[in-house]
Amino acid sequence: MIKTTKIRLKPGCTNPKSALEIDQIYLVGVNHEGFYDKTLVHDFVKKGNIVHVDISPHYPKLIDAISSRGEKYVRSEPNDTPNDNLLRLPRV
């Protein structure tokens, strides 16, 4: 199973309200574990690869998205939490 375990925010962002403010995503379960630019993760998910957010018990999947300005990013599938589950991951 491919999972994301932590995130890096865009420079200067300290209190994110949206997954758009994520710059890089750490992937495990891939050939080269490490941080990947959100646009690469977007393309990876869009190609049909399944990536889960490492938050139990549901481990929501990432879904690809494009902002109104054409910016590629990913977010977690909606559930009963008010904020995107990606924003609940540790930040480095």
Rank of each mutant, 00 (worst) to 15 (best):
S67P: 09
D54W: 03
K17P: 00
V45M: 05
N15M: 08
G70I: 05
L62E: 02
P60C: 04
I22S: 01
P57R: 11
K47P: 07
S18R: 09
Q24C: 07
Y26K: 04
L27D: 01
N31Q: 09
T5Q: 04
A65S: 13
P11K: 09
E71H: 15
L87S: 03
D64A: 13
I7C: 00
K47V: 05
T39W: 11
D37W: 12
V51P: 10
G29D: 06
R69C: 14
G48Q: 09
D54G: 03
P57L: 10
H52F: 07
D23L: 05
T5H: 01
D37N: 10
T5R: 06
P78K: 12
V45N: 06
L89H: 01
K38F: 07
K61W: 03
V30G: 06
T14P: 00
M1L: 10
P57Q: 15
Y59C: 04
V53D: 00
S56N: 13
F35H: 04
N85F: 02
G34S: 04
P82H: 12
P82R: 09
E71G: 11
P82C: 03
S18A: 10
N85T: 06
I55Y: 01
R88A: 13
D37M: 15
K61F: 06
E21F: 05
M1R: 12
V53Q: 00
H58A: 14
K46W: 07
R8N: 07
G70M: 08
V41C: 02
Y26H: 13
P11Q: 05
K61D: 08
N49G: 09
V30H: 11
R88Q: 10
P11V: 05
R91Q: 08
V53I: 11
S56G: 10
P60V: 01
E33K: 09
I50F: 12
D64C: 09
G12Q: 04
S18M: 04
G34K: 03
N49P: 15
V74H: 01
K47S: 12
V41F: 00
